[in-house]
Computed example of a mutant assay.
Amino acid sequence: MAVPKKKTSKSKRDMRRSHDALSAPGVSVCPQCKEPKQPHRVCGTCGTYKGREIVPTEEI
Rank of each mutant, 00 (worst) to 15 (best):
Val3Gly: 03
Val3Pro: 00
Arg41Val: 04
Ser23Val: 08
Pro31Trp: 04
Lys12Glu: 15
His19Asp: 11
Val3Leu: 12
Lys50Met: 15
Cys46Gly: 10
Lys34Asn: 12
Gln32Asp: 10
Ala21Arg: 08
Gln32Ser: 12
Lys12Leu: 12
Ser11Phe: 13
Gln38Asp: 12
Cys33Ala: 07
Thr45Ile: 03
Cys30Arg: 03
Lys7Glu: 03
His19Cys: 01
Gly47Ile: 08
Lys10Ala: 15
Pro25Gly: 05
Ala2Val: 12
Ala24Thr: 05
Val42Met: 04
Asp20Trp: 02
Pro4Val: 05
Glu58Asp: 11
Lys34Met: 13
Asp14Gln: 14
Val27Ser: 13
Glu58Met: 10
Arg17Ile: 00
Asp20Tyr: 01
Arg52Lys: 12
Lys12Phe: 00
Pro39Ser: 08
Tyr49Asn: 09
Glu35Leu: 06
Thr48Val: 00
Val29Ser: 10
Pro31Phe: 03
Ser23Leu: 07
Gly26Glu: 13
Lys37Cys: 04
Thr57Leu: 12
Lys12Tyr: 00
Lys7Thr: 04
Cys30Ile: 11
Lys34Ala: 15
Thr8Gly: 02
Ala21Pro: 00
Arg16Val: 14
Glu53Asp: 08
Lys12Ala: 15
Gln32Arg: 12
Asp14Ala: 11
Lys12Asp: 15
Arg41Tyr: 00
Gly47Glu: 00
Glu53Ile: 00
Arg16Glu: 01
Ala24Asp: 12
Val42Tyr: 05
Thr48Asp: 02
Pro36Leu: 04
Thr45Tyr: 06
Glu58Pro: 03
Ser18Glu: 07
Val55Ser: 10
Asp14Pro: 00
Ser9Leu: 09
Gly44Ala: 06
Lys7Asn: 03
His19Gly: 09
Cys33Gly: 08
Arg16Ala: 13
Arg41Lys: 14
Ala21Leu: 10
Gly44Gln: 06
Ser28Asp: 10
Pro31Val: 10
Lys10Asp: 14
Gln38Val: 00
Lys10Glu: 14
Lys10Val: 07
Tyr49Thr: 04
Cys43Leu: 07
Lys7Cys: 02
Arg17Cys: 02
Gly26Phe: 11
Cys46Asn: 08
Met15Thr: 08
Pro39Gly: 06
Pro31Gln: 04
Glu58Phe: 09
Ile60Phe: 01
Cys46Arg: 07
Ala21His: 11
Lys50Phe: 10
His19Trp: 04
Val27Pro: 01
Ser9Pro: 05
Ser23Phe: 07
Cys46His: 04
Gln32Lys: 13
Val42Phe: 05
Arg13Glu: 13
Ser18Phe: 07
Ala2Tyr: 09
His19Ile: 00
Pro4His: 03
His40Gln: 12
Pro4Met: 04
Arg41Ala: 12
Gly26Trp: 02
Leu22Phe: 10
Val3Arg: 14
Met1Asp: 02
Cys33Lys: 02
Thr48Glu: 06
Cys43Arg: 08
Val27Gly: 03
Tyr49Leu: 15
Pro36Asn: 12
Pro31Glu: 08
Lys10Arg: 12
Cys30Lys: 04
Val3Met: 09
Ile60Asp: 15
Val29Ile: 15
Thr48Tyr: 07
Cys33Glu: 05
Val27Leu: 10
Thr48His: 08
Ile60Asn: 09
His19Val: 02
Gly44Pro: 05
Gly47Phe: 06
Thr8Val: 15
Pro39Glu: 11
Ala24Lys: 13
Arg13Trp: 13
